[in-house]
Simulated scan of single mutants.
Amino acid sequence: MKKNEAVTLFLAGDVMPGRGIDQILPHSVDPILYEPYVRDARDYVRLAEQVNGPFDKPVEPGYIWGDALAVLADVRPDLRIINLETSITTSSEYWLKGINYRMHPENSGVLTAAGIDCCVLANNHVLDWGHGGLVETLQTLEREGIQQAGAGRSRARASLPAIFEVPGKGRVLVFAYGSTTSGIPREWAAAPESPGINLLPDLSIATAEEIGKTVAEVRQPGDIVVVSIHWGGNWGYGIPEEQRRFARLLIDGAGADLIHGHSSHHVKGIEVYRNKLILYGCGDFLNDYEGISGHEQFRADLTLMYFPRLS
C-alpha cells in the first residue's frame, strides 16, 4: 500500500479570546466579572495599555493573532488545532470558580481569521458560564464550520473525535480529554443526557486502555491519531511522572501518534518517544495578561507555534 504524504499540523496551546480580549473586539459581552480583585473585564485592557501604550478600539478579528497570521500563511499547515479556553456565549449563568472567560458569539471571526479547523474544548474554562454557555459555544463553532473535540451535548458526543480528511494525505483523528489536575471540576463531566466535557477519571493504565478501545473503534489503516489533553498546573517546568507514564501508554497501547498537552501558561518540555512527539505543555498562545506581573522567570510572554509533520 502506498504511504500517504506527510500531514503538517499547526498546534497551539491555550487560546483565550475572552475577558479583556473580547472587550477590544467589535461585539463585547457585559464586562462584569466575579473575580476576587477585578470586577470589570475592561480593567485588563487598561492594564495592558499601561504597559504597552493605548491603541484604537475596536480591533479587527485578525489583530489579536499578530505576526502568527503571516507565519501560518507561509507554512500553510494542512490542519490548525488549538485549545480554545473560553466559552463563546452571552450567558450570565456563571460558575462560581474565581475566573470566568467568555467571548461574544459575534466575535467568532477571530477563529475564522486564523483559519482554525479544530477547537479542543476539554478544559477548565469552557463551562465557565454554565451548560447554556457550553451549548452556545458548540452552536457557534458549528455555525462557523469549525470542528471541535472534547465536549458535547451528551457523554457519547463529548467522547467523539474530530475527523479530518486531508486530500491526498489521509485522515487525521483528534481525540480530546480533560484532567482534574488542571482544575476542571468533576461536575463538568458530560452525563449520558446532559452536556459537558470528556473528563478523564484518572491517569491510570485502565484509563489508557479505555482510550485505546475508543480509538480502535474509529481508526482506519493509515489514520493519524492526535490525543489532546488538558492537564497539570499553570506554572512550573517539572513534568509529573504520571503524565509521562500516561503519555507513553497512549502511544504504546492506544495508537496515539502525537500527544498535544496544554494547561501550563508557559511552554514546557518536549519528548520524542518511539519516534512519536509528546508536547507536555504547549503554553498560552493568546491571553489578556499583558499588564499582569508575576512568574516572570517562566517567560510566559513567549509563545510557540508547533508545526509537526506526521505520516
Rank of each mutant, 00 (worst) to 15 (best):
E35P: 00
V38W: 02
V38H: 04
R39G: 09
R42H: 04
Y44V: 10
L47I: 03
A48I: 01
A48F: 03
V51Y: 07
K57R: 14
K57A: 05
V59T: 02
V59W: 01
Y63C: 15
W65G: 07
W65N: 09
D67H: 07
V71Q: 15
V71F: 11
L72P: 15
L72C: 14
D74A: 12
V75I: 14
P77V: 05
P77E: 07
P77N: 10
L79N: 04
R80L: 14
R80T: 15
R80N: 15
N83A: 09
E85W: 03
T86Q: 02
S87W: 00
I88P: 10
T90A: 03
S91Y: 05
S92V: 12
S92Y: 08
K97S: 08
I99V: 14
I99A: 13
N100R: 04
R102I: 01
M103T: 12
P105W: 05
E106G: 13
N107S: 06
N107Y: 08
G109D: 12
L111D: 09
T112V: 14
I116W: 13
V120L: 00
L121Q: 12
A122V: 09
A122N: 07
H125T: 06
L127I: 08
L127H: 11
D128L: 01
G133V: 07
L134A: 01
T140N: 01
Q148I: 03
Q148G: 05
R155H: 01
R155N: 00
A156V: 04
R157F: 07
R157W: 09
L160N: 01
